[in-house]
Nucleic acid binder design. Structure first.
Ligand code: MN
Ligand code: MN
Ligand code: ZN
Ligand code: ZN
Lengths: 127, 127
DNA sequence: AATCTTAATGCTACTTAGTTGCATTAAGAT
DNA sequence: ATCTTAATGCAACTAAGTAGCATTAAGATT
């Protein structure tokens, strides 16, 4: 189910993520490419790119899936390279943050991974 | 839009949350009460209970909304009483955790609130 | 360069989460 | 007992996401 062919549509999506470090929602991606490819294709390409470790995804505040460049599982001992994500409440822009989340120890629970979303105003909207 | 009448349906939902401290997904709630009230009613009651500060909600890993007892905005200076949530990957059970999330300072960003979800195995599934 | 294999796409139809409008009902105030 | 209107039920809708299947095109093989 990983990426094996560099089709025109795959290239278009890779080009977009080559231009930005932002996390883009799947509905935006479907909209951006609405005249270039079928929405089913967008979903399928994103799945494959994620499985290939080229993109990673997370759920934002409203449960909407967002994709961003890079792999979340890149550190040597095969644990998750966990980082936080940011979401601007004003303009909706979303980014990966170079902020590692320590996984806490909780009695009676075994924690494998975590998701951390920071919500506020981005640089543009803040001023 | 807050709760103003204690209808039969509101009481049923309050009774359920009186029995458990778990965070219950909205689809489960609709299913639990499918013979007792309309799904629209479930959605509307949950909205009102949340606005009233009786319940609070968050998005789980899959973007599904979950509700749990209590208010997230209860501390004196009117900031969010932020706590983490747990989701069991095996059985799907979800709980609030008595784990406060410190809001980090990040240059160029103004952070107002945050969401933190820990994913792993609960006590039952762990052993 | 022509051929072949099958990954990938387009399209249609479907499922599910969540919402809206509106007529009807019932909480609880008067 | 009456009245006001919050709350509900119902039906119809929107939007996110998925599945089946015929067709297309990457890119490997000859
Ligand atoms: Mn990221
Ligand atoms: Mn909680
Ligand atoms: Zn912004
Ligand atoms: Zn469990």
């Amino acid at each position: 189910m990983a990426i094996s062919r560099k089709t025109k549509t795959v290239k278009m999506i890779l080009d977009l993520f080559g231009e930005t470090n932002n996390a883009i929602s799947i509905v935006d991606l479907v909209s951006i490419f609405r005249n270039k490819m079928n929405k089913t294709t967008v979903y399928r390409i994103l799945n494959r790119l994620e499985e290939s470790g080229i993109l990673h995804s997370f759920s934002d505040k409203d449960g909407l899936k967002r994709y961003a460049k890079g792999n979340q599982k890149t550190d040597p001992d095969n644990k998750n390279d966990l980082h936080s994500h940011f979401l601007c409440d004003d303009c909706g822009v979303s980014t990966c943050l170079p902020l590692e989340i320590p996984i806490p120890t909780i009695p009676d629970y075994k924690i494998n991974t975590s998701q951390h979303l920071l919500i506020g105003q981005c640089d543009n909207c803040h001023n």
